[in-house]
Amino acid sequence: MKKLKILAIAVIIAIILLFAPGFFLSKAVVNAASNKESVQPKTNNPTDKDTLIELAEQKMPVLKGGLFDRFHSNSPMDIVAKERPDIDLSWFKTIQKQKKEVGFTTYSPNFYYSNSSITAIYTADMSKIKELIPEKVKGLVKPISYTPGKGLIAITSYAYHYCDNDFYNELSISIVTTQPGRSNWGLISLMGELNDKNLWGYVLKLPVDTELARVRGVYGYNLPKWLIPINYTNEGNSLTFNYYDEKGNFDFSMAGKKLDVSASTPEITRSNFINLNKQGQLTHGYTDVRAIKKASSKSAEDIQLNLSDGPLSTFIRSLGLNKLVKYDYQPEFQAALYTPELVQEEKK
């Protein structure tokens, strides 16, 4: 009886949230890009600021004397504290790293000490979403059905200012899914994940702007990473990320308004991802994110995607983005990224 009452309350709340004026139903702001500049594409050629290393049988440049050059993802806390006394390391000191072999030797979790991000969650065409998820993954998790014919796409721009991989920028385009084995109750499922601070998704695109981040992501985490130029700016009233194709031509930009974060209190949320390794086996990885400063909005005016005819822009258009569900502005957060483990599949 108690469970039925809780479910009934959840249904009522979901209906109110779905139809309340202005809540979750703002139109997506997707503009034609006016910014057409090009940049020099990234290369694997080291400069005098780099050290050439080998990882996963591939040679690549890393920052000379940087954290990865010296410690290979196992940075001592006392060294980090000495070099960045402005960063609160108390959370990281509660986490024990473990040595892992993932095609190369690493230590899990990977620590991200100081970072910023903006996220936009949109409704999108469910038929297209279903096409993009491998059948084996769909047997474990389902794309959340937000409204009839609509699923959810999360687009996040990350700036990792200081981490075990030194620093880099990243774009994530992912499908919001149910938890493994859970029924798809649409908005109720979404609200449940948000309430539990335990989110699930399938990553579609994850380009980065350093070769170190690309190789570690592809070989260590089974993630769809490739190398492109990315420019991050923190100026005026917004955080802006400009993305380019592999030849250095402008592709698209994502600009998020700086919201009031004065009421923030630190909280930890887990973001889980299901994917397939190179042997076609299901794997599960996750990131624990400690939000230090964060605010959210449901106004489509607070986040803009400016698209061109580039490959990422073309892909975003193909998703049929429709309504903005939520915008998250996170100017300061920390994270611990764990290496994926094999999912124990049920024998048929």
Score class of each variant (00 low, 15 high):
Lys2Gly: 00
Lys3Cys: 05
Leu7Gly: 03
Leu7Trp: 12
Ile16Arg: 05
Leu17Arg: 12
Leu18Pro: 00
Leu18Arg: 07
Gly22Ile: 12
Ser26Leu: 05
Val29Lys: 12
Asn31Thr: 13
Gln40Leu: 12
Lys42Asp: 01
Thr43Lys: 02
Ile53Gln: 05
Glu57Thr: 10
Gln58His: 07
Met60Thr: 04
Lys64Tyr: 12
Leu67Ser: 11
Phe68Ile: 11
Phe71Asp: 07
Ser73Val: 11
Ser73Thr: 15
Asn74Val: 06
Met77Asn: 08
Asp78Gly: 00
Ser90Glu: 13
Phe92Val: 06
Gln96Gly: 00
Lys99Leu: 13
Glu101Met: 14
Gly103His: 07
Phe104Pro: 00
Thr106Glu: 06
Tyr112Phe: 13
Ser114Gln: 11
Ser116Val: 03
Ile121Leu: 09
Tyr122Pro: 00
Ile129Pro: 04
Glu135Met: 10
Val137Leu: 06
Leu140Pro: 01
Ser145Asp: 08
Tyr162Ser: 10
Asn165Asp: 13
Asp166Gln: 14
Leu171Ile: 10
Gly181Leu: 07
Trp185His: 14
Trp185Asp: 11
Gly186Lys: 06
Lys197Phe: 09
Trp200Ile: 00
Val208Asn: 07
Arg214Lys: 15
Tyr219Ser: 08
Gly220Gln: 04
Gly220Val: 02
Leu223Trp: 01
Ile230Tyr: 00
Asn231Lys: 13
Asn231Ala: 06
Asn234Ala: 14
Asn234Arg: 10
Gly236Cys: 02
Ser238Gln: 09
Thr240Lys: 15
Asn242Cys: 01
Gly248His: 05
Asn249Glu: 12
Gly256Met: 07
Asp260Ser: 09
Ile274Pro: 05
Ile274Tyr: 07
Gln281Trp: 06
His284Tyr: 12
Gly285Cys: 02
Arg290Gly: 03
Ala291Thr: 03
Lys294Glu: 11
Lys294Asp: 10
Ser297Lys: 08
Ala300Trp: 04
Leu305His: 09
Leu305Val: 09
Asn306Pro: 00
Ser313Lys: 01
Thr314Trp: 02
Ser318Ala: 03
Gly320Glu: 03
Asn322His: 09
Asn322Ala: 10
Pro331Leu: 06
Gln334Lys: 06
Ala336Trp: 05
Pro340Trp: 11
Leu342Ala: 08
Val343Lys: 01
Gln344Val: 07
Lys348Asp: 14
